[in-house]
């Protein structure tokens, strides 16, 4: 079967999101099929995080509806939704102490009953997550003691353990060194492609989006948006318009790379 013909997994219909009266995106229509990866790009305050939170059911859209596997998420219980959709937050807050293992185990919460012990599947998913994020040496460390990048790996591992059908990632490359940025995206991509899941990530890293995502949603910052295949949306003119900076593209070994141009520090000196 042509991957383009795969079943619609996640559907966003006529969704509008506002923050403090300001429109962030108007009438968004978007259908994500199994195996697809979508990047959300846009300037600060353009609504990337609000949109992800809306998709996770943490806030209600002003209009429109969101469905997963043809079920409206507003009609699902929070736990039922969390079994199918998982969100990586932009930053984790750790006011109370907990070990790395305890934090990753929490990812299994939506799959567990109150009194049940960890099942074989629970352990399998946790072990897979620990292996992927290379955390086996860290399991008994307190999360408060970790570096920012290590903390981010724990958060990604918890999401992997949750094992949702749709991964929502808010700046997954935050704090990660370049090798773990690639590693995390490779792991997630592999799971999305081989297990027919889907991924939506908000990011500031245009090149990460260009490399790992099939489609891009570019929020313009005024409620308007562009959505389409990565190559169609990631153009110099659209990006420059969205970010109000002259962004140029170079191609190297078949990949496109984007950088802000006209921006020489020497030129600005008197």
């Amino acid at each position: 079967m042509n991957p383009g013909m795969a079943a619609a997994l996640f559907q966003i219909q006529q969704v509008s999101v506002t923050m403090a009266g300001k429109p962030l995106c108007n009438d968004l229509d978007l259908t994500l099929r199994a195996g697809e990866r979508l990047a959300i790009l846009g300037p600060n305050g353009s609504g990337k995080t609000s949109l992800l939170h809306t998709l996770m059911g943490l806030q209600k859209p002003r209009t429109g509806q969101i469905s997963i596997n043809a079920q409206n998420i507003a009609a699902l219980s929070a736990a039922a939704l969390a079994r199918q959709v998982g969100l990586l937050f932009q930053s984790a807050q750790d006011e109370m102490p907990a070990t790395v293992l305890e934090t990753i185990l929490l990812g299994r919460l939506p799959h567990q009953h109150s009194w049940s012990a960890m099942s074989e599947l629970d352990w399998k998913q946790v072990e897979r997550a620990v292996t992927h994020m290379e955390l086996s040496e860290f399991l008994n460390r307190d999360v408060c003691e970790l570096s920012g990048g290590e903390r981010q790996r724990v958060a990604i591992a918890a999401l992997l353990a949750q094992s949702p059908q749709v991964f929502l990632l808010d700046e997954p490359s935050n704090h990660l060194d370049i090798s773990f940025q690639i590693k995390a995206m490779q792991v997630l991509s592999k799971i999305v492609l081989s297990e027919q899941r889907a991924l939506i990530m908000a990011t500031h890293d245009i090149n990460l989006a260009a490399r790992f995502c099939d489609r891009v949603l570019l929020l313009m910052g005024n409620g308007r948006y562009c959505e389409g295949q990565t190559r169609a949306v990631l153009t110099e003119s659209l990006l420059s318009a969205a970010f109000c900076v002259d962004i140029q593209k170079i191609s190297h070994q078949g990949h496109d790379f984007f950088f802000p141009a006209g921006f020489s520090p020497h030129a600005q000196r008197p």
Binding site: H53, M56, L58, S77, A78, A79, A80, L81, A82, R83, G86, L87, F89, A92, Q93, D94, E95, M96, A98, E102, T103, L106, G107, L109, P110, Q112, S114, Q162
Partner: peptide, 18 residues
């Protein structure tokens, strides 16, 4: 278990289905 999640934050817990 939901309490363990809530100790990590309300939003985190809500995203885990609490």
């Amino acid at each position: 278990r939901p309490l363990n999640a809530m100790a990590r934050g309300d939003l985190q817990a809500a995203a885990l289905g609490v």
